[in-house]
Design a protein around this nucleic acid. Structure first.
Lengths: 213, 213
DNA sequence: GTCTATACCGAGATAGAC
DNA sequence: GTCTATCTCGGTATAGAC
């Protein structure tokens, strides 16, 4: 794993990486739909189409599988953030864009459910240096956008930056997205629009008093 | 169970109801902290202080235990709603109050985590007539408040009532509450204030442009 | 109605052949 | 590196005595 920095890879090694990517995708989907506890290793193996014992040649445990999926999602998020930092978008629009990216993943059931408070998986994550580094990194970047947007008077200063950061993170697992989808009344983009609106504009103001846009 | 309508109860029956209330409280707490899958029946029995087999004299299965806890919480919620309907509060303030009631439960780890999408528990709940009746009931009541508040121009009409309803329901399991609490930076009431603000006012407007209060 | 002891099974993980 | 078969353990549920 993680040999992407090597220059030359044999055919077999490429196949290996391919398969691992396939496994991670599967785990991601199961983590998004069923959650860590409900998902079984048999299920992963069946979905990928290999034997369970073969899975364990790639990853040493169920937890390692979940961690790999979470790390992968985190990498993708950081790539999105880097790309946004190359643009000239306002801080507010960067915040909206990254939030919507997360919401689209969630809607398409590719955003792994974070483990709830009491979980060995959580302990494992906290001890995972790479993951924690990436999390700090991401929080730093988004935190800078938040402070910039506050300085530019684009977002409220009546709650702390930390509260705003958590609020945006929470959109990655917002059950409202799934509820609205399963109601069958709205298209995906409508749902994204509505939830973005409730998040940034709030529900407590008549529409025509909106300031930004 | 559910013999509260009977006039006369023997001492033994009272003890029985007392014990069941105690069990339900315990399940509620475990459901709130660990979730259905992670929580074990042994744990429930140990916490209550009786043998596992005795638990099964009161409730036929783990699922029944969870359902009883959920029904209990739902009853409490409906009682809150009834009480609010006896007041002269504005529709907006009724919405805020019931939302804050739910958030306080969550903060004190007494709000059971709803089972995620793929779960047998969810199936059981959908088949549970009493529970579903209460859920419809609750949604009707809150839905009326939402429409009233929209008619009074107290809340936005730029998203549908259904979206608002789901958004408020989601506050009952908002992870932001736990995050802010475990940061150790805020008192409980500050947290309630902040999350209420992000919900109703949104994060996308400078504070001094607030309209309602 | 409460207990101790146990049946039973699902799921994580491993052995060992190819 | 993949497979089939198996071990092991934890957790739901039950038996049967008091």
């Amino acid at each position: 794993m993680n040999q992407s920095s090597n220059i030359k890879l044999s055919f077999k090694q490429k196949m290996m990486l391919e398969r691992e990517a396939q496994i991670i995708q599967t785990v991601n989907g199961l983590l998004a739909t069923k959650g860590y506890d409900t998902m079984t290793v048999d299920e992963i193996a069946d979905t990928v189409g290999i034997a369970k014992a073969s899975l364990y040649r790639h990853f040493p445990s169920k937890e390692a599988l979940a961690v790999a999926a979470l790390v992968n999602t985190m990498e993708n998020g950081l790539a999105q953030i880097e790309a946004l930092n190359q643009t000239t978008l306002s801080a507010l629009n960067k915040l909206k864009t990254i939030t919507q990216w997360a919401m689209r993943l969630k809607l398409n059931q590719q955003m792994p459910n974070l483990p709830s408070e009491n979980s060995q998986l959580r302990e494992h994550l906290l001890a995972h240096e790479t993951y924690m580094d990436m999390l700090v990194n991401m929080s730093d970047s988004i935190g800078q956008w938040i402070e910039q947007a506050q300085a530019d008077q684009q977002i409220t200063t009546s709650v702390t930056p930390l509260c705003i950061l958590y609020t945006l993170y929470a959109k990655a697992c917002d059950p409202v997205l799934g509820f609205l989808k399963s109601s069958g009344l709205y298209e995906e983009e409508q749902i994204i629009e509505m939830v973005t609106s409730t998040c940034f504009d709030g529900i407590g103001h008549p529409a025509h008093y909106r300031l930004n846009e």
